[in-house]
Write a protein that binds this DNA or RNA. Structure first.
Lengths: 164, 164
DNA sequence: AGAATTACTTGCAAATCGCAAGTAATCTGA
DNA sequence: TCAGATTACTTGCGATTTGCAAGTAATTCT
């Protein structure tokens, strides 16, 4: 019931298969919210500033779950809440998201500062490692602090990257 | 007329902006055809094995052109033909496509051989350099020869990569 | 106990998609 | 030369998907 509609006739190309999974305007934004913003709940995704409708959000959460990209976890303190979490398959979308991010920041008018993009390109591996560390340790602090305005700064210490 | 419908209310996040441009099931497949298969015409895109409809293909070509990702060029020998070509902005989607490709090949059931994926991961920079070289020199030989079956082989010589 | 909050579902009009058919310009072969 | 094929589309139409508003059920707060 919650499965994906089997697309009609497509090649087995990995890109094609990928687009069957997240080839729409919303799916990757949910993944982004989970990956870099520390969002976990329906409500947070809904108010992430993109204007997704509730029915579409519910549908995408179902599909992402069916695709094995996210898993729902019950909140221990509040039985109403469902905390979604990226699976390993989900967090492994990080390199793809990073490349898309860098591309758009370079060619489109976006709200991203040149500084952040430069850091992302130059410290690609470190950013990806930090992204994965946050996921592993369930660290919910945003990867890029304060989506509006604040600056990205590389911490010189061990491991610490992209903290405000 | 050929512009994009301005999406309602979205954040200026680069990912969000990207999805406004190619967040659908077809756009990136056209980019792929241009980038790695050496396809250039309406007809080739139509028969690339994905099953896109003619009206949708026409629409996506318009939008990709409006977004500055592709440009149409008149064929010198056949006035009926339009040869589409990636712009620099378009070819710079290569890293993103590569990451998506590798992700899907790893996690989804695709027609890609493990060998090709391994090569792509391990020789990422070389693959990207070769992709760009092909674009620059208008080399139309497929990056991955014979989409079905044939093997990928790394050439040991100078520059030559991913030839059959 | 009443009011919020959370995560949805339902209903409906509008936009988009998939499919089939049609068109205009150009080329090709007898 | 000219009928038929080819190329790049457009048009029409029913089906699906989207966007928006409203409603619902299960908690939790006060």
């Amino acid at each position: 019931m919650a499965g994906k509609a089997a697309a009609k006739q497509r090649s087995g190309c990995p890109l094609s298969v990928s687009l069957d999974v997240f080839g729409d305007r919303w799916s990757l934004l949910i993944v982004r919210d989970l990956m870099v913003r520390g969002y976990r709940t329906f409500r947070e995704f809904l108010h992430s500033g993109e204007g997704i409708a509730t029915n579409v959000l519910a549908d995408r959460l179902k599909k992402l779950e069916a695709a094995g990209i996210i898993t729902p976890e019950l909140d221990e303190k509040d039985a109403r809440k469902i905390n979604y979490r990226l699976t390993e398959k989900g967090i492994d979308l990080a390199p793809a998201l990073l490349e898309i991010f860098v591309w758009a920041a370079r060619y489109e008018e976006t709200g991203a500062s040149c500084e952040i993009v430069t850091q992302m390109s130059e410290h690609r591996e470190a950013v990806l490692a930090e992204t994965r560390r946050r996921w592993r340790e369930r660290d919910l602090t945003p990867l890029i602090p304060g989506v509006t305005g604040e600056k990205l700064r590389i911490m010189k210490g061990k491991g610490g990257l992209l903290k405000t």
